[in-house]
Write a protein that binds this DNA or RNA. Sequence first.
DNA 1: AACTATTGGTTGTAAATGTAACTAACAAGC
DNA 2: GCTTGTTAGTTACATTTACAACCAATAGTT
Lengths: 148, 148
Amino acid sequence: MRRNPEFNPQDFLPYLLNQAAEALSLEFQRHYRGQYGMLRTEWRVLFHLGCYGDMTAKEICDRAGLHKTKVSRAVAALQTKRILTRRELERDRRHAILQLTAKGQSVFAELSRAAHAFDSEVRASMTPEEAKVLHRCLIRIAGFEIGK
Amino acid sequence: MRRNPEFNPQDFLPYLLNQAAEALSLEFQRHYRGQYGMLRTEWRVLFHLGCYGDMTAKEICDRAGLHKTKVSRAVAALQTKRILTRRELERDRRHAILQLTAKGQSVFAELSRAAHAFDSEVRASMTPEEAKVLHRCLIRIAGFEIGK
DNA sequence: AACTATTGGTTGTAAATGTAACTAACAAGC
DNA sequence: GCTTGTTAGTTACATTTACAACCAATAGTT
């Protein structure tokens, strides 16, 4: 029954961060998953297109820090769900611009409303000052290395 | 090429949190993964046993917020790696106390040293005040709902 | 033009995860 | 003792993910 009181998992930042991230994602999933049967990665792709406008899969990979296979499959899934369309560039047929359909846009709109609401709900549990610090720290940490 | 400048993925807490958590975990993995070929879950189990002493799988589930199947598999793996042993209670043979072997303890010791070092490295990128706020917020968020 | 390298993207396969169904041991009511 | 319920833990199967190999289009070199 040895103990190691000097070191607590919750004092280990990667661990704590994971717990927090998981808890929050899980909580938010209730808002979007059941609704459209979308996977996290699909949702991310949608989010990026909605926020930043049409772009290629590669751009999404870079911006979101997602691997190309993940994006590739998410795009395929979103395509069959009529959320987005791909338009090949004739200038360079390797590239294809991804573009939300009308349906995609309305899903995005609804989702981003939900996201906003959820975000303020979470933020309500802290002071504005805390929220600012948290945001700053997370941005810094996220920049440590973006998982390709 | 529509844009939605009012809403940025990085302003959405679950998203940002995920990115930060992933970046940090990835970074730390270099310290422990290659070394022992251990999975995150296995590592977590080891960590809990090391920090809090011998306990049953159930207790690990509750404390770590991990599903029992995950723990079950992690324990099996750690057992074949001679990191821990299970001792059935004759009082109630459903329970089995998990216990680190000597090897397990030394792995834990090394790992927790690495964790410490890593943690202070990360903390060095922020002020003590920021670190305190970050910790407090994450604890609060992690408590939102622990994934069963 | 032919040859190699690079880039954007897909596919195949193996490992990891989630979910549900299951077993075994005990507890409680009758 | 027998039935029903609960708890600890495992197993089976279906999804998801990671990693590597692959393909097709283009760029760069000779």
